[in-house]
Design a protein around this nucleic acid. Structure first.
Lengths: 342, 342
DNA sequence: GACGTCACATACATCGTTGTAAACAACGTT
DNA sequence: AACGTTGTTTACAACGATGTATGTGACGTC
């Protein structure tokens, strides 16, 4: 049913290879034959069979983006949008994989078992540690996102400076006079992931200001979803001392926390100030709007796609991994500085 | 570099086809050879080359999901998550395309030009009308989402009853006593898309209650993003009469409108009640939380993947398109009924 | 007129996999 | 002993595209 080069060749009275040459814009084709072939191509509505081309070329032009999930984390949706945009500029298309907090699925991504049709993977791991990541086979180009887990590991890596960013966020809370600053989003079992990085920034800011770390102000959560932010905030409000500020490890948690605070009649920022992380669009539109850390999302996406492509094209042979750190900035909004009340 | 069937066959001292038979679990392979081949497979770490398999089989196991964009519309992210989940259950992976409000990109999706490596497309069109959709080539299975644009057209189609849903939303506003009900999200040039459907439901509810359609209460917007909801709300507040309720054609618009209302010191729902559409998670966590129409997202995704697969597998040859209409329900929250103020 | 050079076109092999048909052995049946 | 049956394995061709090598003229140069 589909039209092949063979069909077009028969139609135009030339060889298959000549048609291929026309399709690929090869130089030495006479204007005469080129026109005749082109006409046949148009008439028959030829479209290349990418499976065949891929088999021949050893590439598919597809890269995978493996993220925890899209449904409940706006950040990964926005990231996906950015990655797709930059991939397109380089002639790549993106296949998205959800790892869904499953360690096994993450291992599958790493081994390529989950996807053997892609030229490379941009991977935002959640469950895997450096030991796991070291087991990545050399065959499949992989760029890691979002943590410094793998600094020193065998893989390319793009991130922001999570520790510094968290420190700045908490320092901002200190500067506006808060002293009982809680943190939401801790993963106590984790020694090295994003949660740990952001916690370290939080801790550094506090101890830098001569304040103690108080267990009562630390909020453990599971996944960084809105509902967990709300649940965690509820728990914090029941404790003594009550926090006068909360640093949430991402915006979803902050949105959940904000909801819970307002529901409980706590004023934000007067009673409790709130800072999030990621600067998802939702953060600009909540009331009060959320102070948050804005990573250079487009920069991260661009760097990741660029690094991956340089591996795929063979410009950089395996080994000698690059680590790219992109900018971030604290966006101060109403959840910490308030707004003139009407 | 990668291991092929040939390598494994040499290693195990059998033919290539026998290895293939083992890999595919073909029945008539003696336990003895099976074990020997399996051992070679494991040792060499064989992985099928999907390009080759696809070329042979004529299928890739990839379906495309073409949506307007992921970054600013949570609905499409949540939809994508749902589609990916159901696709996975059927052994398919999903490649996401953003059409980015571009008519040309949508036409490319339809013609398959954008992606020739996929077995089929789940397509949520924004710009194309029935005339365009009728030009879809028969070769590529396509399932349309989200509007009734194509009822009677040549393509399968999954949606909810947008007119009825919008009517229920507005009827709810009437029932709580609102009379100056504005609408945000109109696309005046559109005669048939989602915006038109939701407007029709809005109009039906009003005229059904004996109320006139007032031009001053109709808010035209571009894309259904938060910022456009805010801008449109700002314009509405400047008009006379001021609305006492607003029906937003999706939740993004509603979030933007809510932000603008609160910023202007308008109380929600006391002064202005607000209804959205889609029931994205964000709607549950805003303050006040958003009354909204909840489509059966999982049902839509499941039906779309199911219809597409039945086309791909050839269970249903081209023609005889199905139209599936999934349920919806109005979720009443604080933006219309208020909450006990502390 | 022999030669090399260039532009253009073609035949063939190949990428890795799997369907088809056929080969082969072991077995029981007549 | 000839036969079919069943289970197991193999050789071969094909999926559609493209790199390589080769062929064919036309042209200019010595």
């Amino acid at each position: 049913m589909p039209v092949t080069l063979r069909d077009v060749a028969d139609h135009a009275g030339v060889s298959v290879k000549t048609v291929s040459n026309v399709v690929n814009g090869f130089r030495h084709v006479s204007p005469d034959t080129r026109a005749r072939v082109q006409e046949a191509l148009d008439r028959l509505g030829y479209q290349v069979n990418l499976s065949a081309r891929s088999l021949r070329a050893g590439r598919t032009g597809i890269i995978a983006l493996a993220v925890p999930e899209l449904r409940q984390s706006s950040y990964f949706s926005e990231l996906a949008g950015a990655v797709m945009q930059h991939a397109e500029e380089r002639g790549l298309v993106v296949l998205i994989e959800q790892t869904l907090q499953s360690r096994q699925r993450e291992l599958d991504v790493l081994s390529g078992a989950r996807n053997r049709l892609v030229d490379g993977v941009i991977f935002s791991p959640l469950e895997l540690g450096p030991d796991d990541l070291a087991t990545a086979p050399a065959g499949l180009p992989i760029v890691l996102l979002g943590e410094r887990v793998a600094a020193g590991g065998p893989l390319d890596h793009v991130s922001i400076d999570n520790v510094a960013a968290a420190r700045e966020a908490v320092t901002h809370l200190l500067r506006i006079g808060r002293r009982r600053i809680a943190a939401i989003g801790l993963h106590p079992d984790e020694r090295i992931g994003t949660a740990e990085q952001r916690f370290r920034g939080y801790a550094e800011a506090l101890t830098g200001a001569g304040l103690p770390l108080r267990r009562e102000l630390l909020g453990d959560t599971g996944p960084w979803h809105r509902e967990n932010g709300a649940a965690c905030m509820r728990a914090l409000l029941a404790r003594d001392p009550r926090p006068d500020a909360v640093f949430c490890f991402n915006d979803m948690l902050a949105v959940g926390a904000l909801r819970e605070l307002l529901r409980s009649g706590v004023r934000v920022p007067e009673d409790v100030a709130l800072v999030g992380f990621d600067d998802v669009e939702e953060a600009r539109f909540s009331t009060p709007s959320l102070t948050t850390v804005a990573p250079d999302l487009d920069g991260v996406a661009r760097a990741a796609v660029g690094l991956l492509q340089s591996r795929i094209s063979g410009d950089r042979p395996p080994g000698a991994p690059h680590t790219v750190t992109r900018q971030h900035r604290l966006v101060v909004r109403e959840s910490t500085v308030g707004l003139p009340r009407p």
